[in-house]
Write a protein that binds this DNA or RNA. Structure first.
Length: 523
DNA sequence: AGTGCCGGGCT
DNA sequence: AGCCCGGCACT
């Protein structure tokens, strides 16, 4: 039936698509049959629309996986679309589309029957309703998921890359939304909704930092004094969505789910790329949600802490929350929108729980963040974000404690004496962090050898160390030659064995397990 | 001695 | 292909 000259296009029949109808709008349907010659642009696909009609269409009139992207399309007035607001998929109709900017004015009817108009970018819209929850639908094949994914342009299909993909589209032109907000004053909630996605994406962006990634964002932890933790303030106070049964302090709220417009507005001034502070949020232990609820033992300064580590190839990002890591996987690796509702939780396959021995989780994090020279990563991280005047904010704390050891003064407010949690950072780690290339006097560091240490270090520590030693962290501190040299001394190379240790062999990448070239920490 | 991983064998 | 491991080069 199918042309068999090529690899069959993975049974395209049955694919859920949206196809052009006579009226110039796209309607959902499934592929009924494919042309004999699928290579030809003229071949007609038969699409069975959901309402029972059938039509033969060329590929270019079909939107869906394997066909056109929505981004390439022009949507007509009254075209039904789906979009995500505040983590929920809502339906709307197109009012108009600005071809130039690819922004679409969408009218959305909220559950409370309120109608609102949003300006969304084309790539934020979908023509097909997303699957609600794979858990409920008992794991059918990836099909619909694929549809979801591919229908959302810009979601490059599963980037198999360990490069963090900054969800650029979420960060660009947010101004229109701003304008939009002005159009509907007094509706805070909606404002929130509109911002959520962006913020969440920004959070993710900022958070995206795998050991393999050079862009380990330097973030502030709760050690930041209140004046500085710009975002954590805003995020923290977001407990206004009371559906969150969690009676925990406001700080436990989930950024992506809700963030009070008011606060954010205040804090961000104009709502733009001020994501800068966001990373603070997650980095800290206050970033809890229902996922970790049972594990909330930190009041005990527990010795054990469950962390979640991304197992995506080349990525070993660790989050301290389940939702955090899920989001990471979802947006960074699966190329999905950061919308839990739309996700079918495939991300669960890409992270693993790790129990970490830490005497003080906070310490751990602060370590992680202190250990890489902030400036570069920080700047890079925010590269391309408009209106970014983060630097102007009071984030730049004088770095007291480590000023001498930190190359090019990071802003991490280590020195903030008002830190609530005593941060006892083992000197070893810190010195290690910058010791690699920077000239280090042997005497200043612990006399223990690196390897000895690593066998004794907790996993977490090793991870930190790895992060600290990842290439980026050298950028500022290292003498030029190490940059040009590129070839790392063997001792510097971090591999699963070193990072996780023998005792955590199950966390090694497969290659390492097989004594093959490590696939996780490729340099 | 420890580590990274090639080459090759087994299933 | 997935897995395992001897053995070598390197540190």
């Amino acid at each position: 039936m199918f042309g068999n000259r090529r690899l069959a296009k993975r049974s395209i029949i049955g694919t859920k698509v949206c196809a052009l109808w006579q009226d110039g709008r796209f309607y959902p349907g499934v592929i009924r049959s494919v042309p004999d010659d699928t290579d030809s642009e003229l071949g007609k696909y038969t699409v069975l629309f959901d309402d029972g009609f059938e039509k033969d269409l060329v590929a270019k009139d079909i939107i869906g996986p394997g066909f056109q992207n929505l981004t390439n399309s022009t949507l007509k007035f009254q075209q039904k679309v789906y979009l995500t607001l505040n983590g929920r998929e809502v339906q709307g109709v197109v009012l108009k589309q600005d071809i130039k900017t690819n922004e679409v004015l969408v009218n959305v009817q909220l559950s409370n029957n309120e109608e609102l108009e949003f300006i969304k970018r084309l790539d934020e819209l979908r023509l097909l309703e997303s699957r609600k929850s794979a858990r409920l639908v008992d794991q059918d094949t990836d099909y619909s998921k694929m549809a979801d994914v591919t229908l959302t342009p810009d979601n490059k299909k599963r980037p198999v890359s360990h490069v963090i993909d900054v969800p650029a589209q979420t960060q660009r032109h947010r101004r229109p939304v701003d304008d939009e907000r002005e159009n509907s004053p007094g509706n805070d909630e909606d404002d929130v909704e509109m911002m959520d996605e962006t913020i969440a994406a920004m959070v993710l962006t900022s958070l995206s930092c795998s050991p393999a990634s050079p862009k380990f964002p330097v973030t502030m932890t709760e050690t930041a004094d209140k004046g500085n933790s710009v975002l954590s303030t805003s995020a923290n106070s977001s407990g206004f969505y009371s559906e969150r049964s969690d009676p925990s302090p406001p700080l436990s709220s989930h950024l992506s789910e809700s963030a009070p417009a008011a606060n954010i507005g205040t804090i961000f001034g104009s709502y733009t790329g001020k994501d800068d502070g966001i990373d603070l949020q997650e980095s800290v232990d206050e970033y809890y949600d229902e996922c970790d609820e049972p594990k909330r033992k930190r009041s005990l300064q527990a010795q054990k802490k469950t962390m979640y580590q991304c197992t995506w190839k080349g990525c070993a990002k660790i989050h301290n929350t389940c939702s955090g890591i899920e989001k990471h996987v979802r947006t960074k690796h699966l190329g999905l929108m950061d919308t839990e509702d739309l996700s079918d939780h495939e991300e669960e396959f890409y992270y693993t729980e790790i129990e970490v021995n830490v005497d003080n989780v906070t310490k751990t994090f602060s370590d992680m963040f202190t250990s890489s020279p902030p400036e570069t990563s920080f700047i890079e991280m925010h590269h391309g974000i408009p209106d970014h005047d983060y630097q102007k904010k009071e984030h730049r704390q004088p770095v007291h404690t480590f000023a001498s050891s930190v190359p090019s003064g990071g802003f991490f407010p280590q020195g903030t004496g008002q830190s609530t949690t005593p941060i006892s950072v083992p000197p070893i780690k810190r010195s290690l962090s910058w010791q690699n290339n920077a000239a280090t006097s042997p005497g200043t560091v612990s006399s223990q050898s690196n390897s000895t240490r690593s066998s004794k270090m907790s996993l977490q520590e090793r991870m930190q160390q790895h992060q600290a030693q990842s290439p980026k962290s050298h950028m500022l501190s290292s003498p030029p030659k190490s940059i040009s040299g590129h070839k790392k001394a063997r001792s510097e190379v971090r591999k699963c064995r070193k990072v996780y240790g023998m005792e955590n062999r199950d966390m090694w990448c497969t290659q390492c397990k097989w004594k093959k070239a490590c696939s996780r920490f490729t340099d």
